Amino acid sequence: MVVEKEGTFTVDNVALYSKSWLPDTTTPTKAKLLFIHGFSDHINRYNRFFAALASRGISVHGIDQRGWGRSVSHPRDRGNTGPTERVLADMAAFISSHLDDNPDKLPVFVMGHSMGGGQVLTFASHPKYQESVVRRVRGWLLESPFIGFSPEEKPSALKVMAGRLAGKLLPKQQMRHAILPENLSRDPEVVQSIKDDELMHNTGTLEGLAGLLDRTDALATGKVRPNGGAVKSLWLGHGTQDKTTWFEASKKYFEECCGEIPDKEFKAYEGWYHQLHADGEVSEEFYKDVGDWILKRCEEPAQEGAADNGGKVDAKL
C-alpha cells in the first residue's frame, strides 16, 4: 500500500496545497522525487504515476502551484502565478525544503511536466540557484516539456504581440486558454475526466501567460541552457504525436543545448500524446522508465565525466 499525505506548503505567507505519495513501511525509501505540474493542472491528476513510483521506494512530493488546483481559494486567484521571478522563487523554496529536511540524505530528483518541464529547465539553468539548490539535486527529469508550441497550438505572432502589450497594462487581467482534452491523451476515460475536472480552469493572467511565453522563447532559442557543472543528470521523454507541446522542439533542445551534461538520455515515445503518465495502459512503460532511471542513479551517482546516454530510444506501441 502507498501512503498518501496532504498538507500545505507556505511560501511568502501564501499557503499552497501539497501532497506526498510515500512507500509503505515494508518498502525502503531510496529516493525523493519533487514534481512540478503543468498549465491548468494539479498534482492529484498524476496519482497512478506517483503511486507506481512510491511502490518502488521513490517518495513523491508535489504542490499545486500558485494559481492552480487546490491552491486557488478564490476565482480571482486562478492563473495568478506572478512573474517568472515569483514562479522560480516558489520552486526554490519548495525544492530547498526537501533538500534541507533530509536526515537520511536520500538522493533528490526534480521532475516537471509540460509548462512545469519548461519551469524545471529554466530553474536548473538559472545562475541565482546554481550553488544553493541545483548542485544538490541528483537528477532532473522532463516529461513533454514546453520548449515549443505544437503546430496545432501555436498562436499567431499578432496574438502574442497583443497579449504582451496588454500584459504590461493589465498584468492581473485573466484570460482563458483552453487546451483540447482530446489532444492530451488517447485514453477516452482520461479525456472525459479532464472535461469533468472543475480544478482545471484553463485560466491565466496576462502577466503569467507572458512569463510563460518568455520562458519558452528563451529555451527554444537556446538562450537558456543547463550548466553541465551543476546539472549532472538529465532525462527527457516526449511523445512523437504530442499535439500540445512540440516533440521536435524537445529533440532539438536536447541535441543542441544539453551537450555539457555528462549523463543524459532522450526517449521518444512513438505515437504517444502529451500526457505520457495518462496515455492509456501503455503508460505503465513510462512509469517503469522513470523509476528505472531514478533508481539506477541512486545506486550509481552521476559523476563528472559519466557515460553519455544521449542517444534517442524509441518506445514502440
Rank of each mutant, 00 (worst) to 15 (best):
residue 193 S to M: 11
residue 235 W to L: 15
residue 222 G to W: 12
residue 30 K to Y: 07
residue 49 F to V: 09
residue 196 D to A: 15
residue 60 V to D: 02
residue 163 G to A: 09
residue 238 H to T: 06
residue 254 F to V: 07
residue 198 E to H: 12
residue 96 S to Y: 05
residue 94 F to P: 14
residue 235 W to G: 00
residue 77 D to Y: 06
residue 232 K to Y: 03
residue 90 D to K: 06
residue 211 G to I: 00
residue 290 V to M: 13
residue 8 T to R: 14
residue 268 A to T: 08
residue 90 D to F: 07
residue 19 K to C: 08
residue 129 Y to F: 10
residue 300 E to T: 10
residue 172 K to I: 04
residue 249 A to V: 04
residue 26 T to E: 10
residue 77 D to C: 03
residue 120 V to L: 05
residue 67 G to L: 10
residue 178 A to Y: 07
residue 66 R to G: 14
residue 160 V to A: 15
residue 39 F to W: 15
residue 171 P to V: 01
residue 197 D to M: 08
residue 253 Y to T: 13
residue 58 I to T: 09
residue 128 K to Y: 13
residue 176 R to I: 03
residue 94 F to V: 13
residue 119 Q to Y: 02
residue 117 G to H: 07
residue 279 D to V: 03
residue 233 S to H: 07
residue 38 G to M: 04
residue 18 S to D: 09
residue 171 P to H: 01
residue 108 V to E: 04
residue 307 A to E: 13
residue 309 N to D: 15
residue 1 M to I: 03
residue 17 Y to G: 02
residue 79 G to W: 13
residue 150 S to C: 11
residue 7 G to R: 03
residue 185 S to W: 06
residue 304 E to C: 09
residue 185 S to G: 10
residue 243 K to E: 12
residue 303 Q to F: 12
residue 181 P to N: 11
residue 286 F to T: 12
residue 249 A to E: 11
residue 316 K to M: 04
residue 96 S to M: 09
residue 102 N to Y: 04
residue 218 A to L: 11
residue 77 D to H: 13
residue 6 E to G: 05
residue 157 A to Q: 12
residue 157 A to T: 13
residue 179 I to C: 05
residue 245 T to S: 11
residue 239 G to E: 07
residue 269 Y to A: 10
residue 300 E to A: 08
residue 12 D to E: 15
residue 263 D to F: 04
residue 58 I to K: 05
residue 275 Q to W: 03
residue 185 S to C: 08
residue 298 C to N: 05
residue 226 P to Y: 00
residue 276 L to P: 07
residue 171 P to T: 01
residue 117 G to L: 05
residue 184 L to Q: 11
residue 123 F to K: 01
residue 157 A to L: 15
residue 144 S to T: 12
residue 119 Q to C: 00
residue 274 H to N: 07
residue 61 H to V: 10
residue 112 G to S: 09
residue 31 A to F: 11
residue 103 P to C: 05
residue 40 S to T: 14
residue 200 M to R: 15
residue 218 A to K: 10
residue 36 I to F: 12
residue 268 A to R: 10
residue 66 R to C: 10
residue 89 A to E: 11
residue 138 R to Q: 14
residue 216 T to M: 15
residue 236 L to E: 03
residue 192 Q to G: 06
residue 30 K to L: 12
residue 282 V to T: 12
residue 200 M to Y: 03
residue 87 V to N: 00
residue 141 L to M: 08
residue 127 P to K: 10
residue 221 T to W: 03
residue 57 G to C: 10
residue 305 G to W: 06
residue 299 E to G: 02
residue 79 G to E: 07
residue 84 T to C: 00
residue 271 G to S: 15
residue 57 G to A: 12
residue 13 N to S: 13
residue 251 K to F: 05
residue 177 H to C: 09
